[in-house]
Design a protein around this nucleic acid. Structure first.
Lengths: 339, 339
DNA sequence: CTGTTAGCGCCTTCAG
DNA sequence: CTGAAGGCGCTAACAG
């Protein structure tokens, strides 16, 4: 089955020039005489020649692809970001290599960086240990998430500000008993959003009661679990700010399945503005992250770093935005104050 | 910045053996004497040597990666399949290269196949023209979707059977007025599911009225649009089988936002069983596709083909399953018969 | 068991 | 403007 593939030599022979000329005719068309180029191109067409990327890259000392490190590929949150990333990488001549940092053994990460498999790396996993990037030699890396250390260039979203906006909105709608459904402990996003919420509540003179903080992991199931906890509470918050839309969706769903009405009995605010948010019942009020743009900017900044052969570069902070829909209403009568 | 990277020569020099031995010590440890190997490994550690994949692959005449052609990366439907795919590819020593067939220019596809960029290809896009694969030379390809021609090995799901099951379930719940929210015209999945639905309805002696077929594209918005159409109908179906869960979600959402109750006024069945389905209000009854397994099996069959250096191979049909939740109920009183 | 030798296919000085 | 030659870094015969 291994049919013979045309090489640059075949083309050279057929068009009666040297391989060097073929190479030039394809890479720098302007540096070759018109008729010669024509002849070469004809031979290319005839042989069906396509340059072997392996050989070319070996020679050029590059790989032509960039690597995305995603914590969990199955999480739809990343698909749109990756889409944005791919849309700028492809025109720039890079392929997109994707690795799941949860599936892959840890050692593999260092390997990825040191192996020269990629010309650049986009890190989406905020929980990767910083040491992981401290390898002898590595390509440019850009973070597309918050990160413990602030040393590397990144494209981030203002998570704390988003949390503050969410809390303020609930406050302005009359809520005083406000809870929070957290992401996974130790995650930077979790911490930023929690910190933002805490700060804003404090500024408003409201408590964040320990029993109104529900631990979770950003997932649907963790939202449902939070709802169960909420149901078991003697004194319940009248509004819950969820650290992700998925959690919010699980939370609202479970509550309504239990006969609790949203938003008349509880108000809910999410985070992310995933596509389904607008189609839920009730439509979810949430903090929008410009996901596609995160991917795009990450790709652009990374290409620039590669071009400049620099390990460092500028960072960028993208704004978030409150999207008001119908999952927030004033608190039920008699519950507008602290218990 | 371009620090010098250790090559196999550096290791050879440092450990006092030939490069061939270094290569063997790393690739075939058993073919090298114990002490020699130790020395080599020590030198490797000392120099931080990592084999250059480009050079290795050029020599081995392989690429070490497989390419996934996805119609739309932003569609979360694929993320779980890709996750399953990655989970078998990584241990097998392959990287996962992902290309968005809608973002990428069409010519690029042929390039992908001919360029020798990947050792194998997984096609998720059922709308790719069959000619696209008719290149001079291409690596093994496996289809992870239905396809017009049945010539290539594939991992598929029994879409028609799924549709039949959905329709039968609605029938058994008492429905006689049954509609269908379609996927995009021309898509194989669309056709199979429509055909399955049509066949089953016929078998049950029921009509599929033209005005009860809602065109769409599998997306949330198209589900909402179908709801609008439904609302405008004089004679409405009491149940709608949606070609995707996203469409079902959009459909139920829009209906409920308009004050129509699901399932008391309309019953809905979806297709896919995406994660959120169970958390919707009401929880969505749907046809489950084993997405992660689709990815896994595709990876396994493809590796086998590559191993065997064969362009052909076995296909596989994965079963679907009805998941009963709460979006289906008997029709409203007086609407249990055809109008 | 180890070293020598010969490329994998391409690009890029350096001459002509 | 074109050709000749060398080598990117590695592995797979083939000898020894």
């Amino acid at each position: 089955m291994r049919q013979k593939v045309a090489t640059i030599q075949d083309v050279a022979r057929l068009s009666g020039v040297s391989t060097a000329t073929v190479s030039r005719a394809l890479s720098h068309p302007d540096r070759v005489a018109e008729p010669t180029r024509e002849a070469v191109l004809r031979a290319v067409r005839e042989t069906g020649y396509v340059a072997n990327p392996m050989a070319r890259n070996l020679r050029r000392r590059r790989t032509g692809s960039i690597l995305a490190l995603v914590p969990n590929l199955a999480n739809p949150f990343f698909s749109e970001i990756l889409s944005g990333l791919a849309s700028v990488l492809t025109p720039a001549g890079y392929g997109l290599l994707i690795a799941d940092t949860h599936t892959d053994p840890a050692g593999r990460l260092t390997y990825y960086l040191e192996s020269g498999l990629a010309d650049g790396v986009v890190v989406f996993d905020g929980t990767l240990p910083e040491e992981a990037l401290a390898t002898r030699r590595r390509p440019p890396v850009i973070l597309a998430c918050e990160w413990m250390g602030e040393t590397l260039p990144s494209v981030r979203v203002d998570n704390a500000a988003g949390a503050e906006i969410a809390i303020r909105h609930l406050y302005e709608m009359g809520h005083r008993r406000i809870g929070h459904a957290m992401g996974p402990v130790g995650n930077v996003l979790t911490e930023s959003r929690l910190a933002g919420a805490r700060r804003e509540l404090e500024a408003l003179g409201l408590p964040l009661r320990e029993d109104w903080i529900f631990r979770g992991d950003f997932g649907l199931a963790s939202g449902s679990a939070a709802a169960m906890t909420w149901l078991g509470l003697k004194e319940r918050p009248t509004a819950v700010f969820c650290a992700s839309d998925e959690a919010a969706c699980g939370f609202m769903g479970a509550l309504q399945h239990a006969g609790i009405s949203v938003p008349s009995a509880v108000s809910v605010v999410g985070f992310d503005d995933i596509e389904v948010a607008a189609h839920l019942v009730p439509p979810l009020t949430t903090i929008r992250q410009p996901r596609r743009q995160i991917g795009r900017r990450a790709g652009e900044l990374l290409s620039a770093m590669i071009e400049a052969r620099a390990l460092g570069g500028p960072s960028e902070l993208l704004p978030v935005e409150l999207i008001r829909r119908q999952s927030v209403a004033p608190p039920p009568p008699g519950q507008g104050d602290l218990p």
